[in-house]
C-alpha cells in the first residue's frame, strides 16, 4: 500500500524546461538602475517592492527602497553558461546584487510572475 507521499510524488509529470531569462535583485541607493543590453540579455522591466518603476508611469508618491528586481530576458536561445557570463559582466559594471533567479518556461508557459 503506497503512502500518501509516494502517491503524490508519483503524480509528477515530465515538463519541458527552457531557460528564457534571469531576475536580478540589485541593491543601489542611486535610484532606478539603467542598463544597456548585456550579451544576449535585455532588461525588460524593473520593479521595486513589486511595483513596476521602469518603463512607464511612476507615481511621485511611490516609496522605493534600495532593492530592485530587474528582469533580463534572453534575446536568443541561451544556456546556463550564458547566465554565468552575464553575472560576471554585471558585476564588472559595478552592480551590487543580492540574488539572481533564473527564469524558465515550463512546457512553453512562463514560470514567473509579472510586476504590477
Amino acid at each position: 500500500m503506497p503512502t500518501f507521499t509516494e502517491i503524490a510524488k508519483a503524480t509528477k509529470q515530465k515538463r519541458e524546461i527552457k531557460l528564457v531569462g534571469v531576475d536580478m535583485y540589485i541593491i543601489t541607493d542611486k535610484g532606478i538602475p539603467k542598463f544597456d543590453d548585456i550579451g544576449p540579455f535585455k532588461c525588460e522591466f524593473i520593479s521595486n517592492r513589486g511595483t513596476k518603476v521602469w518603463p512607464g508611469f511612476v507615481s511621485p508618491d511611490l516609496l522605493q527602497v534600495n532593492w530592485y528586481r530587474c528582469r533580463f530576458m534572453a534575446t536568443k536561445d541561451v544556456q546556463d553558461a550564458d547566465i554565468n557570463t552575464f553575472l560576471d559582466a554585471l558585476t564588472k559594471k559595478g552592480w551590487w546584487w543580492s540574488a539572481a533567479q533564473k527564469l524558465w518556461n515550463y512546457d512553453g508557459e512562463a514560470g514567473f510572475s509579472k510586476a504590477y
Binding site: 509528477k12 515538463r15 524546461i17 531576475d23 520593479s47 517592492r49 513589486g50 528586481r69 533567479q101 527564469l103 524558465w104 515550463y106 514560470g111 514567473f112 510572475s113 509579472k114 510586476a115 504590477y116
Partner: peptide, 9 residues
C-alpha cells in the same frame, strides 16, 4: 509584491 517563481518543476 507579486514576486513568484517556479524555482524547479
Amino acid at each position: 509584491a507579486a514576486i513568484e517563481h517556479m524555482v524547479s518543476d
